[in-house]
Simulated scan of single mutants.
Amino acid sequence: MMSSFIPGLELSRTFYLQVVRPLVAGVPHSAALIGAGSEVLAFDTERSTDHDWGPRVVLFVTLERTGQVRHALDEGLPEVFCGYRTELGESGSHGVQVSQASTWFTERLGFDPLAGVGVLDWLSTPWQRLAEVTSGEVFHDGLNVLEPARAALRWYPPDLERYVLAGQWRRLARQEAFPGRCGEVGDELGSALVTAELARDLMCLWLLMRRRYPPYAKWLGSAFGRVSGAAEASEELAAAVSAEVGAGAWRERHRHLGVVYRRAAALHNRMGRAAALDDGLRDHHRRPFPVLDAGRFAEALHRAITDTRVRALPRVGSIDQFAHSTDLLTDPRRCRAATRAVLDL
């Protein structure tokens, strides 16, 4: 019986040190907890243990050692470690994934970062996948493959960062007046819905400006809450999305959103990735809907791009910014095909 919950990262680290490493002694290898799973992003709780959870290690070995290592693990792994079964899920397979580095990265991302990271690679890889590879923990890197790969993916190159940030500002620009426009015609539900979408986009923008890959929806709020300076913005966004549905509530939504717009604009100005801009709100055309006019920030970022290849890209952003299908975003092959088509790469 388990006496208390052990966070997955701690559990897997101990599992590697006490069990896996002795079983592969003498075999050159690299080991980490990366990839899928809430424990990789340190968002796991006791609730996480109800399925596909337990001591896990991603183990990289050379091709000629694969059979030897798998046999050693199959024969030597205990059934239970620290109160958790080492078999995960209904398949009966244990939690040590044995692979070659290039194969694992290509299956997870659609490319091997050890061979270089190009424009298509960056823009076709969902933020969740980038977070999964650069988070977690490296336990041992005897093959010198994990640290170089993670370093290559730590963050976008400067001009691609500007391009992605511009894409996020542009998403805000398209809808920032809509909470008021919906509310003005009596569509309070529509106003609330657009407000929630804007809140999501603002949270992603804030994370991107802080050089954090936004995780998928289940963990977005948790990740946002951990970012420096986001406490007040979090309170204002919570007030915006929870404003009581009723006549005139759209004004409250705009008021709370406006505070976060200005905070985001101030952060843009402090980060210095493009020209600083006025962070004041203004009416949308002649309509009484206070907006930041977020498109100004997208344009400033585009003007700051010096790489002509990046500047020539269609202004639609990365895969997360023009596609929301989970079935697409979890399939690297389709992500690459969609990005290649949309960006004409």
Rank of each mutant, 00 (worst) to 15 (best):
G225K: 06
A199Q: 13
R287F: 12
H256Y: 09
A151H: 06
V40L: 09
I6N: 04
A152C: 06
A294K: 02
R340D: 04
S124F: 01
E64W: 02
H94F: 14
S38Y: 05
R253G: 02
N144P: 00
G8N: 11
Q168F: 07
G118H: 07
A149E: 05
G272E: 00
C204Y: 00
G183W: 01
G180P: 13
H256R: 15
R334T: 07
R47E: 10
H268E: 01
P7S: 04
M1C: 05
T66R: 14
G8P: 10
P78M: 05
H51S: 11
G229S: 07
F111R: 09
F297V: 01
V133R: 03
T326G: 06
P288A: 06
H302C: 06
E39A: 14
S48R: 13
Y156K: 01
D307S: 15
V316F: 10
D159A: 07
Q128H: 09
F105R: 05
A25L: 09
V138I: 15
R170Y: 02
V185D: 01
V316T: 11
V138C: 13
L160M: 05
W155M: 10
A217C: 00
I305Y: 02
H302M: 07
P214W: 04
E46V: 15
R334P: 01
M203E: 15
V342E: 11
A337F: 00
R315E: 15
Y213Q: 08
E87D: 07
G280H: 08
F81W: 06
Q321S: 02
Q128E: 15
V310P: 00
W206S: 07
G295P: 10
D283T: 00
P148R: 14
V27C: 12
E197M: 14
S325L: 12
A192E: 12
L207V: 09
S234R: 15
F111Y: 15
H285Y: 10
E161C: 04
P157G: 01
D307G: 13
T308S: 14
Y261C: 04
V57W: 01
L146E: 06
E46F: 06
H302V: 10
L198W: 06
T62C: 03
S325A: 15
G142K: 02
P28E: 02
H71D: 09
L343M: 07
L11M: 13
L208P: 04
H71S: 11
H140R: 12
R85L: 03
R226K: 14
R174W: 14
R211M: 04
E161L: 13
G8F: 03
A240T: 10
A166T: 05
F224N: 05
S30L: 06
Y261L: 05
R65P: 00
E188C: 08
R311Q: 05
F15N: 10
L267E: 14
P290A: 09
D293H: 13
H254Q: 12
A266G: 03
L109H: 04
V145N: 01
D331P: 11
V61F: 03
R270K: 09
C182P: 00
V119D: 11
W250D: 11
D44V: 08
C182M: 15
L328T: 03
V119N: 01
A275G: 08
